[in-house]
Computed example of a mutant assay.
Amino acid sequence: MDLRIGGFRYDTTEALFDGSVTVQGARSTTMSTAATLPEIFERVVADEVDASEFGLTFLLRALDQGVPLVAVPAFPVRAFRHSAVFVNTGSGIAGPADLVGKTIGEFGVYGQDPGVWMKGILADEYGFRPESNRWVIGGLEHPAPPFTFTSHPHPDNLDITATPAGKTLSAMLDSGEIDALFTANVPQPFLDGSPHIGRLFPDYEPLERDYYRRTGYFPIMHTVVVRRELLEHNPGLARALYTAFLEAKQAGAQRYRRFRHLYQTPLMVPWLNPLLEANDRLVGEDWWPYGVSANWKALDTFLGYHYEQGLSARRWTVEEIIAPDLLDT
C-alpha cells in the first residue's frame, strides 16, 4: 500500500522525511507537512492522511465524536510545561495563587495539550480551579476564531469567549487585556523583550526537573494516529508504523550521541554536552521513550486530567486508545 503520513519535521521524525527510515510493507511513503500543526490536525479529521501526528486532546475529542482513530504509542512531541504559562507583569500575578479571578487566554481551544497538563499540575500542586477564571480562545500571533475542525467541550460553569475580531492573544497579553496565557508557543512580544510579559514560573527548569524526579512524567503532547479500518484491512500496519517512528526517533537521538565525540560542534548550541550528561543522569539513556509500558502512567494521567477538566464525555483508558497489538510495547 501507499502511505500518506502527516507530521512536522522534528529530530524525532527527520529520518522518515529524508527516507533513511521507511515503513516496512508500504510500497511508498509520502510525508506530508504544513505551515502549522492545526493544519496537519485538520487533515487527520478530514481523512486526508493515512496516519499522522495528532494532539492527545484532539484524539480524545475525535473519539468522543465517534471518529474511528486509534493511537500508535509513538510520541513525536513532548515538553515540560511549567514554562508554558505567561502573565502580564501588571496583572498582580506573582504566583499560582494569584491566578484566581484572572482572565486567561488559550490558543485555538479551551484545553489544548499543554493547557490540559498545566491545569492538571496546577490543580494537583497549587489548588488551581479553572472555573474561577475567565477564558479567552483565539489566535496567538494572527487573529483567528477557535478551531472549527474539532469539538469544543467544556464544563457549563466556565466563562469562555472568543477573542474580539482582529485581536490576538499575544497582543492582548502584552496590553493587559488578558492577565495570563497558557500556550504551546512562546508569545512573540516576550521573545522581542516586552517588559509587559513574564512567566508564571521565571526559574522554571528546576521546577520541571523536580516534577520529573517526583513523578517520572515527561508530559506527552502528541501521538501518532491511524484509522481503525485501515488497520483492519492491513494487518501488521500498526506494528510497522510504530517500528518506523521508533527507528526515526532512535536515529535522531543517535546523532546527538555521535556528536558528543565532536563536542557537539555540528550543532550551533554551546555547552550542549554538559546538558546531555545532566539529562542522562536524571532521565536515563532513553530521554524520549516510546511504547506503552514506559508511558502508561503519563498517558493515564493525561486521560484523567482530560476527564476531570470536563473535556471528555467519559474517562478513557490507555487500553482503549492504543492499537491492541501494540499494548505489549
Rank of each mutant, 00 (worst) to 15 (best):
A71W: 00
L59D: 00
F86S: 09
A240C: 05
L37I: 12
S83H: 14
P164G: 05
R4I: 11
L60I: 10
A248E: 00
L3F: 02
G139E: 05
S132L: 10
F8D: 13
R260I: 13
E308M: 07
Q188I: 13
H222K: 04
P146E: 01
E53W: 12
A278R: 14
L63N: 08
T103Q: 03
Y212M: 02
S20Q: 09
W135I: 02
I197Q: 12
G198V: 09
E308V: 09
T317A: 14
G138P: 07
N133M: 07
A74T: 11
A84F: 09
I121F: 01
G193Y: 07
T89R: 10
Y242K: 03
E39F: 08
W117A: 06
A34E: 14
G310N: 12
I40W: 06
G66D: 05
S293Y: 13
L267D: 09
M221F: 15
A71D: 01
S20I: 04
A171K: 14
S132F: 05
R61Q: 11
L169S: 02
A253K: 12
G310A: 08
T33N: 14
I321Y: 08
Q188T: 14
R214I: 08
G252V: 02
A162M: 00
V283I: 14
Q112S: 11
R78C: 03
L173H: 03
E232T: 13
A74P: 06
K249I: 04
R199N: 09
F41E: 15
D328S: 11
R43I: 08
R260W: 04
V70R: 04
V136M: 00
T183H: 09
I178N: 00
P153V: 10
G284M: 12
H222P: 10
V23L: 05
R209W: 04
G139R: 05
Q250K: 15
P235D: 07
L276R: 05
P145G: 13
P114C: 13
H306C: 06
P38R: 06
L303H: 01
K102Y: 05
Y242Q: 04
L158P: 02
G115M: 03
L173E: 06
T265R: 14
R209M: 08
D50A: 11
G291S: 10
Y263S: 15
V72G: 01
R27M: 03
E39P: 03
A244Y: 01
V283Y: 15
R9P: 10
R209F: 00
A26N: 11
R78A: 06
H142A: 13
L99V: 01
A94R: 14
P155D: 09
D300P: 00
F149W: 11
E14V: 13
G6I: 04
G176C: 04
P274T: 04
A51E: 00
D280F: 06
T163I: 02
Y126N: 06
F190H: 12
G120I: 01
T22W: 09
T168M: 06
V186D: 07
A298Y: 01
S175W: 03
G304M: 11
S132N: 14
A84M: 12
P235G: 12
P76V: 11
Y126Q: 10
Y242R: 07
P187T: 05
R9K: 14
P143W: 10
P76Y: 13
Y204T: 09
D64L: 00
L275M: 13
A298Q: 10
P68F: 09
A74G: 08
R209L: 08
E229K: 02
R315M: 10
F302P: 10
V186A: 12
